[in-house]
Design a binder for these strands. Sequence first.
DNA 1: CGCTTCCTTATAAAATCCTTAAAAATGGCT
DNA 2: AGCCATTTTTAAGGATTTTATAAGGAAGCG
Lengths: 224, 224
Amino acid sequence: MSKVLVVDDDLDMLSLVRAALEKDGHLIDTEADATAVQPARCQQYDLLLLDVMMPGEDGFSLCRRIRAEVDCPILFLTAKAEDAALVQGFGLGADDYIKKPFSLAELRARVNAHLRREVRQPTHTLSRGGVRFDMQAKAAIAGEHTLPFTRGEYAICEHLALHAGQVFTKEQLYEAVFGFEAEGDPSAVAEHIKNIRAKLKADAISPIETVWGVGYKWRKNSVL
Amino acid sequence: MSKVLVVDDDLDMLSLVRAALEKDGHLIDTEADATAVQPARCQQYDLLLLDVMMPGEDGFSLCRRIRAEVDCPILFLTAKAEDAALVQGFGLGADDYIKKPFSLAELRARVNAHLRREVRQPTHTLSRGGVRFDMQAKAAIAGEHTLPFTRGEYAICEHLALHAGQVFTKEQLYEAVFGFEAEGDPSAVAEHIKNIRAKLKADAISPIETVWGVGYKWRKNSVL
DNA sequence: CGCTTCCTTATAAAATCCTTAAAAATGGCT
DNA sequence: AGCCATTTTTAAGGATTTTATAAGGAAGCG
């Protein structure tokens, strides 16, 4: 979830852009008056989308005014297709230049590409059966939202997913999660499995199979 | 001066692009055969420019193959102007998508914009979650005013923000802030976290999440 | 000395984990 | 098919662990 500020004097354009970007789960603020945009205000956003042609202050001027103090990507929306204007825009520190008329698909793709770059980091992630594990953040993500796993639940879940297809007894799972001293009641693991399944159910996925008389395993060929 | 690799089967195009980018002082390598491009080789470049339509392996396939191991910006050159292809390209982790025919001015402007962004990162200021860190001044700014952090509070806060998304135990945080001998009571860290949160609360932002049983982390805007 | 910062301690609050017990499901048996 | 023994699932409650909060004292610094 990222915060985006859109500056355009055309109110129709604002609502159009807002609707498009909100589909990707972003938080959109809009502003029709460029002169009202101060550097300090921009610092809370992850990306700025500026129209070039506006009465009063235009997008170029606004960019020039705030660039020094704003670190996030700045994208221009423009009807001017001339190279000179485009080069000028990039020269002011812009990160992209989207020519009108643009498709909403392109707008979304470009905005997301810039936001993604901001958070692109060497993360150890694993995707299995519709669930994405961020091993650094110790978080599991399904669809658009983070699953509210507890530490134990996450650990069991990650271990199963990491060794998808392999069957683990309750004792093995307990040991894998809490180290060697597996002094735990097997039913404690069953309890966790139950909770995990309940939380996954909200996203209509159930990758954990029970092997009767043996234990549990993560389904290997995920039918997503 | 940056190193750029251009992959295109069209030799005329290669020399054209090379000439254009060399005007900006970049070092250009070219490659006509996509299958010959290995991830390890790409890691020495600051930017990759890939043609989409190539005999043998196309640009999309190449991107897919190397993206996980290559961290630099990847730009597509393409004649395909359809939205679907464009969205697909961005979906593969591309950073820009330049439609043929493009002007050399636009090409240069876009390439330079991406390269500039890369070097903007190692600057001494960082903006995350509504807080801007001035690492030189050791000051954190939220909204209009400087946060009254103590030295230790600032250090913990900066370390968390710098490694947004990653979970740190109290011991790790203490060590990260005071170096080697982490002979500190974990509850001292908890105390600092409390104070940090209290001071951030005035600006209605709370980017620090507690991962129960593990530690703390700075919330990362996850862009799926 | 007064001030800030940091650490410690103590207590309250919260969340998780485990245990227990009953209900449901499974597989094998006659 | 029907029944039984075993295993799994579900549910609820208390015990345990971890975190949040508050207050007091030691150490550094002007």
